[in-house]
Write a protein that binds this DNA or RNA. Structure first.
Lengths: 258, 258
DNA sequence: GGGCTCGTTGCTCATGACGCAACATTAAGG
DNA sequence: CCTTAATGTTGCGTCATGAGCAACGAGCCC
């Protein structure tokens, strides 16, 4: 009945539906009861009731017109408590904006979320050709430069968990063998930076370096990405110097002492 | 059965419980299944199942130890879509940090949320004595400087809604009469700034000015708050000049043309 | 090893979620 | 102003889903 097939264990259906509503509103910005009901595949009265409880707790609110709903500030309040991530993104944004303006490419900060990499900030340069917003998006760690940095400096248990799963192929260049990825991560730890050459997306290259926290451990990765014709393998070492410098600056702001 | 009495219409109980879990985790940062069940007043297996669906959608995640849950990045993703607020907070932060450093007090930006004022940013100065984090917290508009600004420049229907409810008294100084509050809001509109003198909290004074958006309407309020012994009534006009200037700068960044 | 606590799962049942139908509200057109 | 259509909201009845109980497994401590 749900428009999202659930091959896993049965979930509390009504809660699942309510969460779907939040995601619908995140995507659409505004929507009415009937529209939400249609998209969810439930009767409008069900949609209305689910919205009522979400509204009573501030997760959604009604816009000026009657019956048009949008996400509410309860969501922002919740996010506000995920303090570490928001702090990192705030400290890193200015540095990333500067680097993006300098290089003209897209600069992201990513953190490890379970065994996935998640982008939490994005700064675009003038020459940036991508309109894609990576913020909040999960990426596979073995195929992205940020992911490789996060993996290389993660606890062994995290790395083992990632290596225990089949490594998905995205392009002909994706590293999918455990020995080659292991060797790559060893090289990342030695060099202090990582790269991806059309391993996640054909035509997309990136270079990343680790951001450290006050305790000295790697807490995030800062990456520069751009089209392969501009961000060419031969340019990687030079770009890496810049990326390492920027990541170092963010590290300093996070309390890291070199 | 819920630890939150619901005098209003019946809500979808299971969804209400799931949302309560999110709020418990927002408050506690980490919690186990049994603990959450206890606090929610439900059996731990119920808590577990509610957590399972929240986890499947990324709203919560398990920390390293098995069975310890915390808010997940799904929440940050959702908040990321409330673009207008986050944009305002990002544009305003630098200005607020500067003013806070200058004046030594606490600087906040607040927006109107229904008929409440909600703080969305906070910058602290060196002399700031408050460790209280106002971000995400709702305050009564009639008793706070930000609230008065937001009310004064809000549509008449919003003002009428606030004035139609009894105005709660927080201190002996709180304005609780409709005629006196109406007069105060008239004065705010004339002066272009608002203040509160121990009306919300004994010993706490604040001055606020409006932030305008590209369309010229007031979209937020920027306030400076501090202890009454330092932020004294006689200093209000001088402080107001600084607050108006900072609010004007944020307004410019939001696209407002004076 | 035993005891305790917590997380997870299977089972059962009754109650709460949900769909239907009716009513209320709003907007647009004649 | 009236009519129509669309959408939001509410009451009712049904049954499937949510929820509690009990059992089991895992981990930790003595």
């Amino acid at each position: 009945m749900s428009n999202e097939p659930e091959p896993g264990p049965a979930l509390v259906q009504s809660v699942d539906r309510a969460l779907s509503i939040l995601e619908i509103l995140a995507r659409r910005r505004n929507a009415g009861v009937t529209e939400i009901g249609r998209e969810l595949g439930v009767h409008k009265s069900t949609a209305f009731r689910l919205l009522a409880v979400l509204e009573s707790r501030g997760f959604v609110e009604q816009a000026q017109e009657r019956g048009t709903y949008r996400l509410g500030l309860g969501v922002v309040r919740l996010a506000g408590t995920v303090a570490a991530q928001l702090d990192l993104s705030r400290q890193g944004h200015e540095v990333c904006d500067r680097l993006a303006a300098d290089l003209g490419e897209t600069v992201n900060i990513a953190i490890l979320d379970g065994n996935r990499a998640v982008n939490i900030t994005q700064s675009r340069g003038a020459a940036s050709v991508t309109s894609y917003n990576w913020v909040g998006r999960q990426t596979p760690p073995h195929a992205t430069s940020s992911g490789k940095v996060l993996l290389a400096f993660a606890p062994e248990s995290v790395r083992a968990a990632v290596l225990a799963e089949p490594l998905e192929r995205f392009t002909p260049a994706t590293l999918t063998g455990v020995p080659e990825l292991t060797a790559e991560l060893d090289a990342v730890r030695s060099a202090g930076w990582a790269s991806t050459s059309e391993e996640y997306e054909v035509g997309l290259n990136a270079v990343a370096a680790p951001i450290r926290g006050a305790a000295g451990s790697v807490i995030a990765a800062l990456s520069v990405s751009g089209p392969a014709y501009r961000l060419d393998r031969t340019a990687f070492p030079e770009i890496a110097k810049r990326v390492i410098a920027a990541a170092g600056e963010v590290s300093g702001r996070m309390g890291f002492m070199a």
